[in-house]
């Protein structure tokens, strides 16, 4: 396999905290790894087992919930 392993990471982020933090990081020109894909949710209470399973099913190597 060419190149080193780059895990695909999906993050479910709360609109009011974790997502805002990521947004602020962007405003401050701070970088985070491009293999992290963020999905904004209005509240992490909205995140369901199904969301996590579907992310894995569609090829994510890791999933995190931040809120």
């Amino acid at each position: 396999m060419a190149g080193k392993y780059e895990p695909k990471v999906v993050g479910f982020c709360c609109h009011y905290c974790a997502y805002s933090a990521a947004d602020l990081a962007g405003s401050m020109r701070l970088e985070y790894a491009p293999n992290v894909r963020i999905v904004k949710v209005m509240c992490t209470g909205r995140v369901d087992t199904l969301h996590l399973l579907k992310a894995f099913e569609d090829g994510a190597d890791a999933v995190f919930v931040a809120g």
């Binding site: 199904l50 399973l53 894995f56 099913e57």
Partner: peptide, 16 residues
């Protein structure tokens, strides 16, 4: 309906 989705997802993943 939700449990169907969960089980189907689990089955797809294990088959993969």
């Amino acid at each position: 309906e939700k449990e169907v989705e969960l089980l189907a997802t689990e089955l797809r993943m294990v088959n993969k």
